[in-house]
Amino acid sequence: MSNVQDTTQKDIDAHALHAEVQYKNFSDLAGKVVFITGAGSGIGRAMADAFAVNGARLALLDINAELLNKAQQELQQTWPGIEVETVVASITDDVAVENAVAAAQARFGRIDVLLNNAGISMNKPTLELAAADWRRAIDINLNGAFYCAQSAARRMIAQGSGVILNTASMYGTVAAPERAAYCSSKAAVVMLTKVLAVEWAPSGLRVNALAPGYVQTALTDELVRTGRMDFDALIARTPARRLGKTHEIATLALFLASDSAAYINGQAIVADGGWSAYSYI
């Protein structure tokens, strides 16, 4: 089995990310207030960099205080003068979520974009899936997404505009064995996205979902290390013959949050290197 490259220094490469997005026109995002959950690592951390490149003001939430503080320090070092508010909280706590969003609104005066990114993986044979594991996946991936969307939307509807991007998964659109809790929770996020999109569009909101395939993060590295993921088989199965990069998902979020995507609403945008299109086994 091949080893996935170490992501401790590759997870976020601010200079590579800047090179990726600097030629794209997302100037309408400058000054926007962007609330990101799961912002301490992985895709959420890449999102923070991507929106920072484009002059956004950031409110970052994560359950890991150490990662969150590191993210804030690195962002402020890379882009001096950037406004960054942080809060340590669990998205499964609806009261903590409401307090965090209220604090961001108090600091910045509004909430323009919610990147509803926090979530967990759950890869276990279904007959061995404990009830506690099932509840944990649903509580974080689905309930947490709902609490954050509801809290942010209260502010967005009052101001007459806003964008919510829920991080789902390609496994919210296609099935796989030993992922009953994960697939179910992410499929529910896709349907939640559609419901909120049609309900809140008349109030000036857009709600879409990002549905990444396999993206190289510390989480995928851990799955390979513990033998829960066969890296060689995974690459062979992916038409692009590689994993996705966190900045590629972050750049997709930039587009969907921008005015360039003003007529895209209620969609789950899959970015999986062709995985779900490839039906040959």
Rank of each mutant, 00 (worst) to 15 (best):
A149I: 05
I235W: 09
R110H: 07
N117R: 04
A48P: 04
A158F: 08
T92D: 12
A181K: 00
A201E: 14
A257F: 02
Q72F: 04
R135F: 07
M122E: 15
M191C: 07
Y280H: 13
I249Y: 03
L115G: 09
L254K: 04
A180N: 07
K186A: 03
A106C: 11
I164C: 12
I264L: 15
A14P: 03
R110I: 04
Y214C: 05
A253I: 10
A52M: 08
G109M: 09
R107K: 15
L196S: 04
S90A: 13
A16G: 06
A197Y: 01
G31R: 04
G273K: 11
A106S: 15
G244K: 06
F26D: 01
T126K: 00
L142W: 07
S2V: 04
N117T: 14
I264P: 05
A218W: 00
N54F: 05
R107P: 08
A46E: 11
G144R: 02
T173C: 12
D11W: 12
D272E: 12
Q22R: 10
Y171I: 10
G40W: 05
A168W: 01
T37N: 09
D139A: 15
D230L: 07
Q72G: 11
G273P: 04
Y23G: 10
E98L: 02
S184Y: 01
E20K: 14
A268I: 03
T193D: 07
A152R: 03
T246G: 12
A132S: 15
D259T: 12
M122I: 00
A130M: 05
C183V: 14
S41V: 05
E98A: 13
R135Q: 13
I12V: 11
T173I: 10
T126M: 09
Q159K: 04
T193C: 06
Y147I: 07
A104H: 15
A209R: 01
V195M: 08
P212D: 15
V215L: 02
N25S: 12
K70A: 15
L234R: 07
L114T: 06
V95P: 01
Y182P: 10
D133M: 06
K24A: 13
I36R: 01
Y171W: 14
Y214E: 06
A145D: 09
T217S: 12
N265R: 00
T78L: 03
A39S: 10
Q76V: 08
A59D: 00
A137Q: 03
H247I: 00
L60A: 07
W200Q: 02
A104V: 06
S41E: 09
F146N: 00
A257I: 02
I12S: 09
I269W: 12
V215G: 09
T238V: 08
A236E: 15
L75D: 02
T7G: 00
L219M: 15
T238N: 12
D6R: 11
A262S: 11
T226S: 14
G274A: 09
A211Q: 05
V174Q: 11
Q77H: 08
K194F: 06
F108K: 08
S169W: 10
V174C: 06
G274E: 07
S169T: 13
